[in-house]
Simulated assay, not measured.
Amino acid sequence: MADQLGLGVTSTHAYKLLQEPELTSQTLDDIATVGASLAIIPGGIAHEEFSSLDGLRRTADILNGIAEKAAGHQIRIGYHNHWWEIEPTFDGRHAVELLADLLEPSLFLEIDTYWAAVGGADPAALLTRLGDKVLALHVKDGPVRQGEPQVAVGTGAMPVPEILAAAPKAARIVEFDECATDLFQALAASRDYLVGLA
C-alpha cells in the first residue's frame, strides 16, 4: 500500500521487539520489508525502572540487547519517552538522560517533546543536552497537562520554535495521543504551521 501511494517508511514503532522476543527476527524482517531502517521501542518497560539507577541499567541492557540483534538486519533501535522517563531526576538530570549515557552508540532517542514537558523538563534544554543522540521528535501541542487532549501544533502552550531549534536535524513527527478537535483538521493545521516555520 505504501508503494502504491508513493510513500516511504523511514521509521516505525515496534512494541513486538520488547513484548515478543521470540519473534524478534521475524519482526525485524517485517520492518525491513516496509523499508524502515529505524525501529523505536515506544514504552512497555515498567515505569518503576526509571526511578532507580539499577532500573535504568536493566532497561539499557534490554535495549542494547535488542539493538545487537537488529544490527544484523541493518536496523537501528531507538527509544521513545513518555512522562515517566522524565519525572525522576538524579542530581538534576532526568532519568532519560542517564539512560542515554548507558545506551550503545547505535541506539538513538525519539523524544516526545510534549511528554517531556508534562514530566517536568524544559524540552529545548533537554534536547540540547541530549544532542545527536536524538534522531526524531514527536511534536505536539496542548495545555501541557496529563490527561488532557492535545491541539494543533502552534495553538497550545508548547514553545515549538525553540524546541525545533534545539534539534534542527531531528525528524519532526506530529502525533496526537488524544485530539481536542477534529483530528484531520488538526493534522493539516499542524503541518501548515511547521512548514511555515521552515
Rank of each mutant, 00 (worst) to 15 (best):
G6F: 05
V9E: 04
T10A: 12
Y15G: 00
Y15W: 14
K16A: 14
L17Q: 03
L18R: 03
E20M: 12
T24D: 01
S25H: 14
S25A: 15
A36D: 07
L38A: 14
L38S: 13
P42S: 09
P42V: 07
H47C: 00
F50C: 09
L56R: 11
A60V: 10
D61T: 11
N64W: 09
A67K: 03
A70Y: 02
A70R: 07
A71Q: 14
H73I: 04
H73E: 08
I75Q: 03
R76L: 07
N81S: 11
N81D: 13
N81E: 10
H82F: 05
E85C: 06
V96W: 03
D101E: 15
S106D: 13
L107R: 04
D112R: 10
Y114T: 04
A116H: 06
G120W: 08
A121K: 11
A121M: 09
P123D: 11
L126P: 06
G131I: 06
G131F: 06
D132G: 00
A136F: 01
D141K: 08
G142Q: 10
Q146R: 14
G147L: 12
G147N: 13
A152Y: 03
V153C: 05
G154A: 04
T155E: 15
G156F: 09
A157Y: 00
A157I: 01
M158K: 06
P159E: 10
L164I: 12
A165W: 02
R172Q: 15
R172C: 09
D177V: 03
E178C: 04
A186S: 15
V195G: 00
G196Y: 04
A198P: 00
